[in-house]
Nucleic acid binder design. Structure first.
Length: 429
RNA sequence: GGAGAGAUGGCCGAGUGGUCGAAGGCACUCCCCUGCUAAGGGAGCAUGCGGUCAAAAACUGCAUCGAGGGUUCGAAUCCCUCUCUCUCCGCCA
């Protein structure tokens, strides 16, 4: 959600900056709604004021035992027009809010302008892709070859885009998330959180998934009314921890992390990544969230991105960091770095983490604030990033650490989490 | 699932139809006093959204006492619905 004050004072700038993201902002419509709002609001509040004064006078008159019939009729007359005014005020305010909730965030000045992912800019690389003296297998061939990855049974249970891991592969998956959590809590100053996997609509509105992206979510009906949504990322529950909270400045920065499953309907991705574990309805992720002072949010973005990178460095996985262009960023973000890990079977880099500074976009929706130097409530800035996607990390480990015989070596940092297992081989069923 | 109690400002807590955005306390900020270890005195101190205004400050209006609706000239206070919290019973990992 954007600052409505900014819209009122600098509409042209907002329009121009949103245009760089391919968002067509109907300024004329906004102006018209604002004018209508102002007109109705002033009129309504004037009437309310009159009513309040008159009612107060009635109370005072009654206390003195005076007759108040005339005054009561007067207020009744005010109320006749007031009811309609209040209704139209509610209506225009709801329409304005819906209009504003639809807006994406303004991109930061340092974000390259572009239309699609082809305009994203690489900022750095780590590691050198390994050269193989045998034909590389992709993670599906590896996993299924070892008898540890089973899409067929998963589809019997749940349909497409689900998977079953077995034995040491399942353990590798667990080892990865444990390793990530330990690293972030021990070395990067994050507090581990266990959070709900089902949340209400207000929570999703806070982080920006609703109302616009409902189609991407799974939901479950809740008895008499309403529903719960399955979280598409732990960003949602972690960030909403501070919804409707006024923090002390000393509380900042807050660094939170959680390992959760994530559920995405993947509507609109038909035909994309149908093979393998890359795009599933259910996947695990260790998420990083920071709640920070507005002055420090860009430093925090660099830091948070570094925390995610550290995981890949320790795992010895080659990657690159790219900055998303204006046209490719998520709606809530002002600036996003994607980290892409090297997948030898695809001979390409694939996204494994996305780290964003949302500035006050989510904070404004959530009314997440802190008391600043002047003791005034001020919106915090929120950041989030994958630290990192567990399933995709496992894919990367499988492919990058595969051996000629179809077994997979376990990266050194994971071996303690694997009970000393150094090579994942074929296991008896 | 059954029965009961409750939800008020950053926190605690008073307030059952009118001058209540709300006593008192704690915390916090400023000032005064005081050489000392939870000392005393005074003042200030909710949030959101408007209007005057380019903006800040200032002034001012409206809304908000869990949420929504209703009764009333007037609702924190009365009525209805819902949500949440707590206690007891049942069930359960």
């Amino acid at each position: 959600m954007l600052d409505i004050q900014l819209l009122r004072t600098d509409l042209d700038q907002v329009e121009a900056r949103l245009a760089t993201r391919g968002f067509k902002f109907d300024a004329g419509r906004f102006r018209a709604m604002e004018e209508e709002r102002k007109h109705i609001q002033v009129r309504t509040q004037t009437l309310q004021s009159e009513r309040n004064q008159a009612s107060k006078a009635i109370g005072q008159a009654k206390a003195k035992g005076e007759d108040t019939h005339v005054q009561m009729q007067e207020v009744a007359r005010i109320n006749e027009t007031l009811a309609a005014d209040e209704a139209s005020l509610n209506d225009i305010q709801a329409r304005l809010e819906a209009f504003l909730l639809d807006f994406p965030n303004l991109p930061h000045a340092s974000v390259p302008v572009g239309k699609s992912e082809s305009d994203n800019v690489e900022v750095r690389r780590f590691g050198t892709p390994r050269t193989f003296d045998f034909e590389v297998k992709d993670h599906v061939a590896l996993g299924e070859g070892l008898g540890l990855l089973d899409f067929e049974t998963a589809s019997k249970l749940s349909g497409a885009r689900f998977s079953i891991l077995k034995g040491d592969l399942s353990r590798l998956h667990r080892a990865l998330s444990q390793f990530m959590l330990d690293t972030h809590t021990r070395d990067h100053g994050y507090t581990e959180m266990y959070v709900p996997y089902m949340v209400n609509a207000e929570t999703l509105r806070g982080t920006g998934q609703l109302p616009k992206f409902e189609a991407d979510l799974f939901s479950v009906p809740r008895g008499d009314q309403g529903k719960h949504y399955l979280i598409p990322t732990a960003e949602v529950p972690l960030t909403n921890v501070v919804r409707d909270v006024i923090l002390q400045e000393a509380d900042l920065p807050m660094r939170l992390t959680a390992h959760t499953p994530c559920f995405r309907s993947e509507a609109g991705s038909y035909g994309k990544d149908v093979r393998g574990l890359i795009r599933q309805h259910q996947f695990d992720k260790v998420e990083l969230v920071q709640i920070v002072h507005p002055q420090h949010s860009y430093a925090a973005l660099e830091e948070l991105t570094g925390h995610a990178e550290k995981i890949l460095q320790l795992l010895g996985l080659p990657y690159r960091v790219i900055v998303l262009c204006t046209g490719d960023m998520g709606a809530g973000s002002s600036k996003t770095y994607d980290i892409e890990v090297w997948l030898p079977a695809q001979n390409t880099f694939r996204e494994i983490s996305s780290c964003s500074n949302c500035e006050a976009f989510q904070a404004r929706r959530m009314q997440a604030r802190f008391r600043n130097e002047k003791n005034k409530p001020e919106l915090v800035h929120t950041l989030n990033g994958s630290g990192v996607a567990v399933g995709r990390a496992m894919v990367a480990v499988l492919e990058n650490y595969q051996n000629a015989d179809g077994t997979v070596s376990v990266p050194a940092v994971l071996q303690p989490y694997m009970g000393g297992v150094t090579v994942i081989g074929r296991q008896p069923a």
